[in-house]
Structure formats: structure tokens, C-alpha cells
């Protein structure tokens, strides 16, 4: 029974199958919202309402010719897309959907899984950097340098922002943090500032406008992905989609009270809350223009990080008051 359950975790929910299906749905949602915000139609014809468009795109990319540059580091170049996909999928397993028992820690839910999840979500950035560097192209190298520069910008505010609800809940375990806010929903409010900061940081992590600097097509062609084509590009795109699902799931678990109610009701919570976060992400994407790399660093260190520290202070004071 336990084996079956584990296999279910790994491959069905919240494992690979679910992540694949749900991430393509989220991409569709993102594209549709983005299009409607711009008074366009968005995907319309593949499947009803164009729901199958992301899958069609994925399959089409899989079928395309796959070119590896002669000067590239072939081993790294081949392995990285799959590795990136594996990392974000592994991160997806840690989302507290139904695979936990508050009383007993298990291998998908334990003290400190918040940190592990954040760490797993940082890895794709490094993978993208390595991918850019191994493809030996000027545009990719510039893109890779930009990826790292951005990482130093948004990572600290993100960690600080996620820290404050965890401190208030007094736990490093996602399931416990979520349970804490389910019990005291009013305490979600003091964390709003941290939520806003985290949304901006996640936007940067996902390299979406205004932070789509590493692959800004009008500046450096495809940036990090200039040399990637066919299957590898398809995997990278899927990686970003899954990363979007996982990071919005993380924000939902930490800031919006998680996914209570077992598998079914919890699933409804998951969908509603992640879509809400993704809607915010799309809104930011539609609202802004791409900024310059130096402006990202300034934004992160001048505004986001101090605000996150301020939020931490507020939370610590509040915790003192409450206890």
C-alpha cells in the first residue's frame, strides 16, 4: 500500500503527470489572461478555448530539428534541460497537497522543507546559466551573465519575504505553516507586504516581463536559449511552466493558507490559489516594460530588500505582542 501511495505521489499527484497537465493549463491561463488584458483573443482554436495549445506547442517543438553547436560542451548541453525538468518536478513533490500528515513527518513533508523547496527553486537559475555558458554563443553568454546578476538581486528579497510568515507561524515546515494560517486566517493580513515582494521576486525568478532580461529577444536574440532548439527547448519551456506552478504553489502555501481539506477539496484550493497568483504574475507582465539589468539590482536592493527587512521587523514585533 505504501509503495502504491509513493508511486502515486511520484507519478500522478502531485508528481509528473499532474505537473505536466496542470502546468500546460497554467500556461494557457497565463497566455489567455495576458491576451485578454491586451484586448486580444489568445489561444482559441486548439482544443476548446485553445486549451490544448500549450501541449500542441510542446509536441511541435519536440518534433523540431535539434541542433547542437560544434563548439558547445556537448555533455552539459544535452543533460541540462532534463536535469532542470527533474529539479522543478522534485520541488513540486514538496508542495503540501495531500501527501502529508501533520503529526508524522514524511519524506515529502518535514521540518525545513520550506528551505529545501526554495533551494530546489534556485537550482533552475544555475542550470540556465550553465546551459547558456555551455552553448558558447555571445548572446547566450551575455544572457548567462544576466541570469546570475539577477539571481543576486531577487533571491535575497524572496528568502526574506518567505521568512516572515514562517517566523510568525514558528515552523519551517510548509504543512505546518499552512495549518497555522488556516487556524488564524486574520494573521495572513500582516504578511501582505511580504506577499507582494515575493510575487515580484517570483516574477524575476521566472524571467517574465519586466525581468525577461536574460532572454530579451529584441536585445540579445534568444539570450540564454539562443542555441537551444527542438526537444531541449521544449524541455526548458516545460521547466519554466512547472516552475511557475511550483512557485505559485509555494506562495499559496506560505501566504494564502495552503490547501486544506485532503485530496479533493485541497485540489480545489490549489487550483484557485495558484491561478490567483498566476493572474497577479500575468498582470505584472502586462503592466510593465522590460527594465535594464542594473535597474533590477537597484530595485532589488534599494526597495525590495529593505521592505522585506521592514516586514520581518513588523512580524517579529507582532509575534512578541501575540505571545
Amino acid at each position: 500500500m505504501a509503495v502504491l501511495r509513493t508511486l502515486l505521489y511520484l507519478f500522478v499527484y502531485p508528481g509528473l503527470l499532474f505537473l505536466f497537465a496542470y502546468s500546460t493549463f497554467c500556461e494557457w491561463f497565463d497566455r489567455k489572461v495576458f491576451a485578454r488584458l491586451q484586448n486580444r483573443m489568445g489561444p482559441t482554436h486548439t482544443g476548446s478555448f485553445g486549451l490544448l495549445q500549450p501541449i500542441a506547442d510542446f509536441i511541435k517543438l519536440l518534433a523540431k530539428e535539434d541542433v547542437v553547436p560544434a563548439a558547445a560542451d556537448k555533455g552539459l548541453f544535452r543533460v541540462l534541460p532534463a536535469f532542470g525538468l527533474a529539479v522543478v518536478s522534485a520541488a513540486g513533490l514538496l508542495l503540501p497537497v495531500w501527501n502529508f500528515d501533520l503529526a508524522v513527518p514524511s519524506f515529502t513533508s518535514f521540518q525545513g522543507d520550506l528551505i529545501v523547496l526554495l533551494y530546489l527553486l534556485s537550482l533552475p537559475t544555475l542550470i540556465i546559466f550553465l546551459a547558456a555558458w555551455s552553448s558558447t554563443n555571445y548572446f547566450s553568454s551575455i544572457g548567462g551573465a544576466r541570469v546570475l546578476t539577477m539571481l543576486f538581486g531577487y533571491e535575497v528579497p524572496l528568502f526574506l519575504a518567505v521568512l516572515s510568515p514562517a517566523i510568525l507561524a514558528g515552523s519551517w515546515r510548509l504543512a505546518e505553516i499552512a495549518a497555522f494560517y488556516q487556524a488564524k486566517p486574520l494573521l495572513i493580513l500582516p504578511n501582505l507586504l511580504a506577499f507582494a515582494i515575493a510575487v515580484v521576486a517570483v516574477q524575476a525568478k521566472l524571467e517574465r516581463c519586466p525581468f525577461d532580461i536574460p532572454h530579451a529577444e529584441t536585445e540579445i536574440v534568444g539570450g540564454t536559449f539562443t542555441e537551444f532548439s527542438g526537444k531541449k527547448l521544449a524541455l526548458f519551456r516545460l521547466m519554466f511552466d512547472i516552475e511557475m506552478v511550483v512557485s505559485s504553489g509555494l506562495l499559496a502555501a506560505v501566504f494564502l493558507g495552503g490547501f486544506p481539506g485532503g485530496a479533493l477539496v485541497g485540489f480545489a484550493h490549489l487550483v484557485v490559489k495558484t491561478l490567483f497568483v498566476i493572474f497577479l504574475l500575468s498582470l505584472i507582465r502586462a503592466l510593465t516594460s522590460r527594465i535594464r539589468i542594473d535597474q533590477v539590482v537597484t530595485l532589488a536592493w534599494k526597495y525590495l530588500a529593505p521592505l522585506a527587512v521592514l516586514q520581518l521587523l513588523i512580524i517579529i514585533l507582532l509575534k512578541g505582542l501575540l505571545s
Binding site: 489572461v33 491576451a35 485578454r36 488584458l37 491586451q38 484586448n39 486580444r40 483573443m41 482559441t44 498582470l283 502586462a286 503592466l287
Partner: peptide, 19 residues
Amino acid sequence: AAFLPELLRSLFKKPNTVD
């Protein structure tokens, strides 16, 4: 977010493009 009102208004409007 100067563009916000216009964007949100479009969200509930029919798309301007033609199929």
C-alpha cells in the same frame, strides 16, 4: 501601474481582434 485601469477594463470586454 498607470496602465492598470485600461487593462482591467479590457479583461471584461470583447477582444478587439477578429477571428
